[in-house]
Each structure stands twice: as C-alpha cells, then as structure tokens.
C-alpha cells in the first residue's frame, strides 16, 4: 500500500487529507469532524477500520484513541473487520420481513455457505442483517455498497449474486467514497501528487 510519504504508517492520500481539511472547516472544532474522518478512513483502509485506521483518525483530529474507537463503535455502518468485496445488507424490518426478507436471507446464507456477519472464503461476499433502509416501497431491500436493490425475493436473489460476481462496483469502499463526496460539497481535490 502506498503511504504517500505519510509518517507513522499513515495512509491517507493527498486527496483525503484535502477533503478532511475541508470538512474540518465546516465545524467549530476538529473533534466534530470525527464521523466524516472515519468515513474517509474506511475508504482509505479497504472498506473497514483496523486499529491503524482509528490511530490515523486520532492523530489527524488530535483526539484520544479511546474516544475515536468509542465513537466508531457506537455506529453500525463502520466496519471493524474486512467485509466481502460485496457486502450485502439485508433489511429485515417490518415491511421487508412481511415481504419475505428472511427467505432472502436464508437463501443467501445457503447459496454463499455463510451466516449473517460472515465473509465467504474467497472474500467476494459478506452478509449482514440491518434495520430499516427507508425504501419500504420496494421491500425486500438489499443494500450493496452505495447501491440499493429493491424487490429482492428468494427467487431472484441468484440473479443479484450473478450480477455482482461480474461487477467491480458497489463495494464498501465505494459506499464510503459516495458518503465523503456528499460531505465535501466544496469538491476539494488536491493537485495530483
């Protein structure tokens, strides 16, 4: 992994550093930029937050390590283990449950040979059960990276898997990137290093 000449094993790219600098200006204190900084870290560290990622956020925001971990672990969308190249988040809230979310879930588990919360051996897929994704009109909803897939059923879920197998997009990194873009309306882009 390229270090961009960063010290102490830091991994943020010049672009990330510029984006974080922009985000920090949105708030009265650096500490408040914690959540966006964690999203940038999740993008830079391959879609999850290993201890080194938390360390980098702590260093860049000048906050204690324990606080960064406390904040990150409060939320469910930060990953602390490496997810599959495609992380399937199946909504099992009311509307989706009524429309067969658990059948979808069990089908996925059977097809992929893993349980919710696990990653396939080849690192391609992981599954998680999540709360409402706010897209109830298209229940059952499955979120994969930055993309929603609606009206998923136990019958058509194979198609979704096939489609994803042949796709390089909709990864956890892309989800993080999409969120960071929303947080940086200034579109801060550093000059290519």
């Amino acid at each position: 992994m390229e270090t961009n000449g960063n010290e102490g094993g830091h991994r943020f790219s010049q672009k990330s550093i510029a984006q974080l600098d922009e985000i920090i200006t949105h708030y009265p204190e650096r500490r408040a930029a914690m959540l966006p900084a964690l999203w940038i870290a999740q993008r830079e560290y391959d879609g999850y937050l290993p201890p080194e990622a938390l360390q980098e956020v702590a260093d860049r925001l000048e906050r204690p390590l324990s606080e960064v971990q406390a904040v990150a672990s409060f939320y469910t969308m930060y990953n602390f283990r490496k997810r599959g190249r495609h992380h399937l988040e199946v909504c099992t809230c009311l509307s989706c449950a009524v429309r067969g979310a658990y059948e979808v879930m069990h089908k996925l588990e059977k097809e992929l040979g893993i349980s919710a919360g696990e990653v396939t051996v080849d690192g391609e897929f992981s599954i998680a059960e999540v709360e409402c994704l706010d897209f109830c009109g298209a229940a059952t909803v499955v979120q994969v990276g930055d993309q929603y897939f609606g009206n998923v059923t136990a019958e058509n879920v194979d198609m979704l898997l096939d489609q994803l197998r042949n796709s390089d997009s909709h990864t956890p990194v892309e989800l993080a990137d999409a969120l960071v873009k929303i947080m940086t309306p200034g579109g801060s882009e550093a000059a290519p290093a």
């Binding site: 204690p64 390590l65 324990s66 606080e67 971990q69 406390a70 672990s73 409060f74």
Partner: peptide, 9 residues
C-alpha cells in the same frame, strides 16, 4: 490519559 471509553451502544 484517556484510557477508558464506552464501546458500542
């Protein structure tokens, strides 16, 4: 020393 923190929720 900021050693202890609440994790999860």
């Amino acid at each position: 020393d900021h050693q202890l923190a609440f994790l999860k929720r």
